[in-house]
Design a protein around this nucleic acid. Structure first.
Lengths: 347, 347
DNA sequence: TTGTACGCGTTATCAT
DNA sequence: ATGATAACGCGTACAA
């Protein structure tokens, strides 16, 4: 079964290509009879327009591009999940690329997407991205760009983020309200903005509550992803060596580190939350099933993805209508999820 | 900065469009001088060919489509990960769609991909897919189709799979060699082929070792994904009620169920592996960090993705050369990973 | 209501 | 070595 085209249909029906095209696209200036004739034959021949030609003609591809650091991560895969669903409903397709936290790759991928003629681009920047010329290139091309989660504040485009600093602040305040004064922080690497913001939230919570900030209680996790578990356990061990009886709680930059930490405590008979409380970040579903379950921060990844898509389509429409495009920064609310790794008398 | 095209370059340089095109595409019949002239100007103007036009002309899009049941799953996200990497290297883009285990959606997505003019399609079928007319449509369109993991044996195309039955067989044989005779199986839902095959492997291992198959030792997990943890714990509880002192080991259809099961045992002071041994499936990284760690089956998701891409590109090339396309079924080897939830004296 | 004719940007053939 | 021209399949302004 070969693909038919307008010419074929026109020829067998004795009409012109133009009439057939109009009939198929629901133009009003075509008689009901011929319209039906055309539609029926098109149906029968299983006609689908050649998108290459349509793209060339209309200059849009009904395709958007997404660049993320990695796919193999529950946070990002959830974001992608909702982006896909949203785009699907609107008849758009999604091209996904992974930067692998590699700036050069990210740059190359932007070029690829641009050359491919996508209608819009969503990016969560790699940790190594400093230079943003590639982003400016997108904007100069007149293609809507939305940054999410890992953003650059100086780029003139819409952004969808969590308020990491506030979320961390709230989590640590909860630990403080529980009566803890010596609160450690297993922070992320030094560069990523999220990691910085969570650290700053932690610090501010302390000072706002008149607790002296003690740098020796802050440990840095350098690894990524899967190794976080191991590093969480190692840091827990080190923390016990350094501060044994002088620490009441830990706030970790992500859940896997928390789980690693918990694992160390469980193995060494250190009672959570009685001897030490634990607060994670991201509300990965596994935190709900550890023993004890771990309190964490829900980031609402699905909402981030959904909002990102929503704003993109809004800008696409504004562009089509030649309206002015006003960029927005949306802050997706986070929630504290209280579980058994913290005392929760006061909420 | 507006997009330039061949006409622009040709005009400002005083050449014809044809010459410019040739120069850019490295044809030999163009003088070095003009070649350099063209390339320099193209560079300066930041020329990139309009892919819509290229697609229309060459009839290929350098884009492939992938349909999977869900993105939010470590197995699939790992497969996607390696597909993306492979395609990237070859300058191809990847459109990803999620069927959400919904047949109607899967069918619609195939149509979308076809209408979009992708050069090839990779699919892992939804559990509900019985009718395969949409797959035949792909084949009739002359577009290479590769099925992976969740396949339909009757479709004439290349396939990449694990040998689930053998993997399950091997795992259960290991449990038997450890001296266990009463081995339970927490199987998956009744429909999916993987779940059936793992069950059959379990059963065959028993009979091959002269152990009577006892249906009351087989429990069905009906849930998907995240709830598997909870169901694993519930089934463990039920198993203890039903067979308390008359069961030595459990083989579960996936790791999350194993983890749920382990969690129940840990909470109830049932020693793994001393009182009961546990074998999972998929080698999710979390099995390595539970206490005790859980023996599991490595499926080599990355190899599956990589091989799927490799075969696709091979067929693409064969098609381009008008060679005959011979479909292959590749079985990606699995490995037993022995950890602390089983006794491993004999391997 | 229908058809003619052109253009979208590129590649490829065939002259020159 | 270079260029004129057709073609890919479609949409649309304009003429009929």
């Amino acid at each position: 079964m070969q693909k038919t085209n307008l010419k074929e249909i026109a020829k067998t029906l004795g009409f012109s290509v133009a009439t057939v095209s109009k009939a198929l696209n629901g133009y009003s200036d075509v008689s009901e009879k011929t319209k039906k004739l055309v539609l029926d034959l098109a149906e029968e021949l299983n006609y689908t327009p050649n998108s290459f030609a349509v793209n060339l003609r209309t200059k849009e591809s009904k395709t958007i591009g997404v660049i993320i650091p990695t796919m193999v991560h529950y946070f990002f895969s959830n974001i992608i999940d909702s982006i896909l669903k949203d785009c699907e409903e609107r008849g758009y397709m999604v091209i996904i690329m992974q930067s692998n936290e590699n700036y050069e790759l990210e740059k190359k991928q932007v070029d690829l997407l641009l050359s491919k003629g996508v209608d819009g681009i969503l990016i969560s920047l790699s940790n190594k991205t400093r230079d943003t010329s590639h982003l400016k290139k997108i904007i100069n091309s007149g293609i809507p760009l939305i940054l999410f989660d890992k953003i650059d504040k100086n780029i003139k485009c819409s952004k969808i983020i969590n308020d990491d600093r506030k979320a961390a602040y709230d989590a640590v305040c909860h630990l403080i309200k529980n009566g803890n004064k010596r609160i450690a922080h297993f922070r992320g690497a030094l560069n990523p903005q999220n990691s910085i913001d969570r650290f700053l939230g932690y610090k501010k919570a302390l000072t706002d509550n008149n607790i002296e900030y003690d740098p020796s209680l802050v440990y840095e996790c350098k690894n990524n992803n899967r190794d976080d578990f191991v590093e969480g356990a190692e840091l827990a061990k080190q923390l016990m060596i350094d501060h044994k009886d002088n620490v009441n709680a830990i706030f970790t930059v992500n859940d896997l580190i928390s789980i690693g930490t918990l694992n160390y405590f469980n193995r060494n008979n250190i009672k959570v939350p009685d001897e030490i409380e634990l607060f994670g970040f991201s509300n990965w579903f596994m935190t709900n099933v550890t023993t004890p379950s771990i309190s964490s921060v829900e980031q609402n990844a699905n909402k981030i993805g959904k909002k990102a898509a929503e704003i993109l389509f809004k800008e696409l429409e504004q562009k089509a209508n030649e309206e002015e495009i006003l960029h927005e920064t949306h802050i997706i609310e986070t929630e504290l999820i209280f579980r058994d790794s913290t005392n929760n008398k006061i909420k």
